[in-house]
Design a protein around this nucleic acid. Structure first.
Length: 580
DNA sequence: GCCGTTTTCGGCCCGACTGTTTTCAGTCG
């Protein structure tokens, strides 16, 4: 069993505890960086079996190498253990409160001798905190507000929820009397699968304050955190924080890069700028003179693309501005990402034959309306009794209806075809859900896990690998069966799964249902290396869910670095199931 | 704690906003 997934969290925890104990910020920062690095390295870290080998990693010096080596051989981090010994357990949670950083957290803890969130709440309410020097009524109130707010909301939300909020706010902003241009930035623009804060960037013709005022007065705003001429932050009733920044027009490209992130990508760009004798900040790119930005002579760039060019880097689509893609950017090997217009048809949808809300004919009609030339219908298989899974007899009956509909499409001159598919449960023993004879009658089979998800890693791995090797298996559906913010996926070594799938010529789905959004984009780099094919699927249970593939599926496939050539349903219906 | 020399110390991104203080530290992104 691998214990590496927990290592980044432990390193992060060490960084937080260092801050609380009053350590130098840069020292704590080194542990942050190590956490990010270890996350990126994954299992590859194991192959570094000496301190010397660990030290070859960027950002890992003598001390961190020793800690990591200790962890890999003995399973603990000495530094962390020492800190946990000296700091109370509850204190670390204080750092999650925005507005309360390590310095003031430590101060409250030491001055009042308290360390839990509950104790903090009481101290904020009874006035002990505001009486401390450096604090006052306002800051105590602010921290208390944040604490109360956090008790009733989650850290992050699904991308779909964030998009709904963003759309609403943008509509409201359009009522501003000053003309302006606004764009979504941050993790929303990078198409992360979950979102914490929502960031917006704007330029205003005239008085920017008018836009900030309008922003702070949006209908769903429940608290204004800050309200300035260039920066405002609010909380909305849906539990999210929204930030608006306004900049001058000539600052827009640099600001857009800056506020799009990721943090790691920005660090990378800035160090790139330094190498070229330049300095990059949120306002622009400047020559570096005597270690200072020469603000009087900005390097001209009217777009993000031009700015990347000045750094001798290819324009990087927002979806790929993540640490994992740094090597592609440096080596100038970014792929041409798949776009919505590349999609030719729809795979993975349910009908009234199992748990869908619409009939086969209605689903087909809806796909035609959206401009697709085929639909691979995949109702549930017999084990999924809770979802009305099809018995072999029903399968035959469904095939008849599909054939009739296809005949009808041909007769009426429609360039459209329904494919006979099934979403077959992968049984606990790794077998698919029908006899081979029945399975052979389908045009394609999606194999998915729906039950018995708590198997141990070894058994689960064998289960999925067996399914992948079944000759009828065309696509592996939502591979880990995770539900974002609800439950983790099953225990699977996805690296092995991806390699095997590529070998077996089985595609792994990118499931566009908002809580799923997997194959996880973090695995896209490996997928490209081994030549894996994907399929961008709506997992639609009703006609209005088909469009998920363009709303959420395409952004996620782009984020995973897929080009159209590696996407099954970017193929024409004639070439779709050619398995070379 | 890491890194890289103008090579064993000094820099590590830096600007906006807030609140408390009275000129700035803390926090955030």
């Amino acid at each position: 069993m691998s214990d590496l997934p927990t290592l980044p969290a432990l390193l992060q925890r060490t960084a937080d505890l260092l801050r609380l104990s009053g350590a130098n910020e840069f020292k704590a920062g080194a542990w942050d960086k190590a956490a990010a690095l270890v996350e990126q390295e994954g299992e590859a870290l194991r192959s570094r079996d000496s301190e010397k080998a660990l030290q070859e990693l960027p950002g890992i010096g003598k001390s961190l190498a020793s800690e990591l080596h200790h962890y890999l051989t003995k399973g603990t981090l000495p530094q962390l253990e020492a800190l946990e010994e000296s700091l109370p357990e509850g204190l670390i949670q204080w750092l999650n409160l925005s507005g309360l950083g390590p310095k003031r957290a430590a101060k409250i803890h030491q001055a009042l001798d308290i360390s839990t969130l509950d104790e903090l709440k009481v101290a904020l309410e009874d006035g002990r905190v505001e009486a401390l020097s450096g604090f006052g009524k306002k800051s105590a109130k602010k921290i208390l507000n944040t604490l109360t707010w956090m008790e009733g909301s989650e850290d992050r939300c699904l991308q779909s929820e964030a998009l709904a909020i963003a759309t609403q706010v943008e509509e409201w902003l359009r009522g501003c009397e000053q003309p302006f241009q606004a764009i979504r930035a941050g993790s929303l623009r990078r198409s992360r699968e979950t979102i914490g804060d929502l960031d917006f960037l704007a330029t205003v013709d005239g008085d920017a304050k008018a836009l900030h005022d309008r922003f702070c007065e949006a209908p769903d705003v429940v608290e204004i955190l800050s309200r300035g001429d260039t920066k405002s932050s609010v909380r909305v009733k849906q539990g999210r924080q929204l930030d608006l920044r306004t900049v001058e027009k000539d600052e827009f490209p640099a600001a857009l890069i800056y506020f799009t992130g990721s943090k790691e990508h920005n660090v990378f760009l800035r160090s790139r700028a330094r190498e070229k004798g330049l300095t990059l900040n949120e306002y622009g790119l400047y020559p570096l003179v005597d270690g200072e930005a020469d603000r009087a002579h900005p390097v001209k760039a009217e777009t993000e693309t031009e700015l990347y060019k000045k750094l001798d880097l290819p324009f990087t689509p927002p979806e790929l501005r993540e640490q994992v893609y740094q090597s592609w950017i440096e080596e100038n090997t970014l792929p041409e990402l798949v776009e919505a217009k590349d999609l030719k048809g729809v795979l993975h949808a349910h009908s009234t034959w199992s748990d869908g809300k619409n009939t086969l004919a209605e689903m087909a009609e809806a796909c035609m309306k959206l401009g697709y030339s085929y639909l691979g219908i995949t109702d549930h298989s017999q084990s999924a009794f809770y979802a009305g899974g099809l018995k072999p007899k029903q399968v035959e009956a469904q095939w008849k209806e599909i054939e009739q509909l296809n005949q009808h499409f041909r007769d009426s001159g429609k360039d459209f075809v329904l494919f006979k598919g099934i979403e077959s449960d992968i049984r606990a023993d790794g077998s698919l859900d029908y006899d081979d004879e029945v399975l052979a009658g389908f045009d394609f089979v999606i194999a998915s896990i729906h039950g018995q998800m708590d198997m141990d890693a070894e058994a689960m791995q064998a289960r999925v690998e067996k399914a992948l090797c079944h000759p009828a298996c065309t696509i592996l559906g939502h591979p880990t069966a995770r539900l974002l913010l609800q439950r983790p996926g099953v225990k699977l070594d996805m690296e092995k799964v991806i390699r095997l799938a590529a070998e077996q010529n089985v595609a792994i789905e990118i499931n566009a249902a908002p809580p799923r959004l997997e194959l996880d984009w973090r695995l896209g780099k490996l997928a490209r290396e081994v030549g894996l094919t994907t399929a961008i699927c709506p997992d639609a249970h009703a006609v209005d869910q088909i469009d998920r593939i363009t709303e959420f599926g395409i952004p996620m496939a782009r984020k995973a670095g897929f080009h159209a050539g590696a996407v099954l349903n970017c193929r024409s219906k004639e070439q779709l199931f050619d398995r070379g």
